[in-house]
Nucleic acid binder design. Structure first.
Lengths: 179, 179
DNA sequence: GAGCAGGTGAACACTCATGTTCACAACGGT
DNA sequence: ACCGTTGTGAACATGAGTGTTCACCTGCTC
């Protein structure tokens, strides 16, 4: 049941980062006292939500074979499915002020950066820095999550949208005006 | 001098959306009373900052000839230069709850959406919805602003990065694995 | 039934952002 | 020198979120 509490907290805090603890408790169908017993302070709750998301990413990361050439496609597809839990990590303001969290987030980026660097020998452009490509991927993910939450994009369409847009761009195949 | 106040408020609130009015006033080198005299309430300040950003966009929008085929490139290049003032519009939480602001934001999107739809006849892909392409552009902008604020990206490089990435994608030219 | 773990609402004190007012200082125009 | 404007710090009341405690209830095991 504590799991459901964290998930509810995730979506409530994501929708309104200034939501009070009372709001979170009510949304989770739980007393504010109970919430306080699990997470003695607001900072503790936020940290728990973030760590939960990081655990989720770790579990996904383990399932991806980073040695395969289509590892990125696999990773993106799996990350899209995670939705708000991970979006929280990239969106919640002030999260990077927690040193421990910042460390975990950077550690999460590292293998992907390595993968990108390696693939820049084959299927990825060499004229862009790896970090820019990584953040472009994140931007695509965030884009998809937002569209899904607004009901504009079907969750099952999302991976294809993100991958095709990030990899091939929005220009039509014929128009190659690389400047 | 009021202009400088709004710009300071923009960057302070962007860095920390929960910053107190005292923080804003101090950052602007002005008394909290003075701030209150100009903007009687916090909501009024936020609205003023947002409207300032929208005015800025309007003034840019007027300079772009939406009939030209390279209007998008022109628009993006100009928007990148605006930086945090516009980033505020896309980032600040709860901004869309103000009906008047939401209207202005949608009105801002409209001509760009029309342009995208028109260009889908020529240089833009037809197999993606116009709104998706629009949001991909925004995501690229946001990406660049963030990289600039972290000092990773030179402002003068930004337009090229955004345009080439959004239009052509991150895949190397040879790898055309359109699924 | 006794005991215990877990959950709950009520209540309290405390902090802090906020809105508001007021008296005072600086400055420019007349 | 006078006065309106503009900015300033100090002070105050208010409200909301927060952390904390306590008494009470429920369901479970022994």
């Amino acid at each position: 049941m504590s799991v459901h509490l964290l998930q509810t907290a995730t979506s409530v805090l994501l929708k309104d980062p200034t939501a009070s603890l009372g709001d979170v408790a009510r949304a989770a169908g739980v007393g504010r006292t109970t919430l306080h017993k699990r997470f003695p302070t607001r900072a503790a709750l936020v940290r728990a939500v973030a760590n939960d998301a990081l655990d989720l990413i770790d579990s996904v990361s383990c399932q991806v074979d980073f040695d395969r050439d289509d590892a990125i496609e696999d990773l993106i597809t799996r990350l899209v499915a995670l939705g708000p839990r991970v979006e929280f990590l990239l969106r919640f303001p002030g999260l990077e002020r927690d040193a421990e969290l910042r460390t975990r987030i950077e550690a999460m980026d590292e293998p992907v950066l390595d993968l990108i660097t390696r693939l820049q020998g084959t299927k990825l452009r060499r004229d862009l820095p790896a970090w820019w490509i990584l953040h472009t991927l994140y931007a695509g993910l965030f884009n998809a999550w937002e569209a899904i939450s607004y009901g504009r994009l079907a969750p099952l369409d999302a991976p294809r949208f993100v991958l095709t847009t990030v990899f091939e761009g929005v220009a039509s195949a014929g128009a190659t005006d690389r400047t």
